[in-house]
Design a protein around this nucleic acid. Sequence first.
DNA 1: ACCTGAACACCGTTCAAGT
DNA 2: ACCTGAACACCGTTCAAGT
Lengths: 192, 192
Amino acid sequence: MPDRSYHHGHLRAALLDQAERTLREQGIEGLSLRDLARQTGVSHAAPRRHFPDRQALLDALAEVGFLRLGDALAAVLDEAGEDYEKRLRAVATGYVRFATENAALLDLMFATKNTGPSDAVRAASARLFTSVGELIAEGQQAGVLPPGDLERLRLLLVATLQGIAALVTSGRARPEQTGPLIADAAGLFLRR
Amino acid sequence: MPDRSYHHGHLRAALLDQAERTLREQGIEGLSLRDLARQTGVSHAAPRRHFPDRQALLDALAEVGFLRLGDALAAVLDEAGEDYEKRLRAVATGYVRFATENAALLDLMFATKNTGPSDAVRAASARLFTSVGELIAEGQQAGVLPPGDLERLRLLLVATLQGIAALVTSGRARPEQTGPLIADAAGLFLRR
DNA sequence: ACCTGAACACCGTTCAAGT
DNA sequence: ACCTGAACACCGTTCAAGT
């Protein structure tokens, strides 16, 4: 018998936690509001207070995903030291690793929606992309990245990393090819 | 009152046709086997003869998608003339255009599945990627693309184009940025 | 404020039966 | 071979009602 008072103020977080687990294990198709409520020990209508519909849950998960990815990249940069090429390769590796280890989450984060991303998701992704932009600016100032429009180069880098992850998770590239692909991509940007 | 005999031998094609329309209008979430049967004028269990479950329908759509994309790129190459840089840019533009105009279809084609792509989907995508590989080989022989492993460069090109499309369709890049992004990507590969 | 229980209109899937 | 109709176990969503 679940302690109902536990969820006072924590139900939203509990649901999101469980949703992340289910997403990892079952993929996005296996994510059901009713199932989530069941596993969290509340009635099937309880999640509605926090997530008005299924899309609201997916948006919340996408937002969490962008925050987590941002944290992961910040951690990777912390350990990467001073050498710029090493920093760029570390971020590229970290991005693709996160994307392939959280494939269903990445699908959510970059899902095609008629309406475009919600405001919260847009804000979370903007923060991530801004930090990638700072890394790009760093490289341009150091003269090891091609000059030109910062935003375009930033988008192209993210696109390349996202595309590599998509090929791997969709089974179009073998996992062992991930490393070489990232190396080749970094080489293109670093004009090697 | 639908003419039932019409579907003798054509139901599969009729279902796929309707599914393509629905996919374009409603996205992948709006694709239901029961709805499809209704719109095609057969009972809800009839599609089962051709598509044992929903995933079989999605796989068939993905296969159609890879064939269509292959046709589109072949047509684009036909019109592109002899100049190699023009040919590469034409393919890049054609790929991203197809991907953004058929966003839901592309989602299906590159969907993350536990099992990996079905044999039919794998074959259809392999054919497409082979033709991209031939274009890469052409460029390497002409000396306008970086030398090195053909498969790696081919995967990297597809990844870049796929990533650009993903950023646009997910609302992370504005549609007007598509052209510049493709130009920048081509510039990287062509060492401009 | 937060949660419950019943209700509604959908699904995918299965299967015996019809032609 | 190909399709139908009924049945089962699920969904998301809504809403009046409880504490």
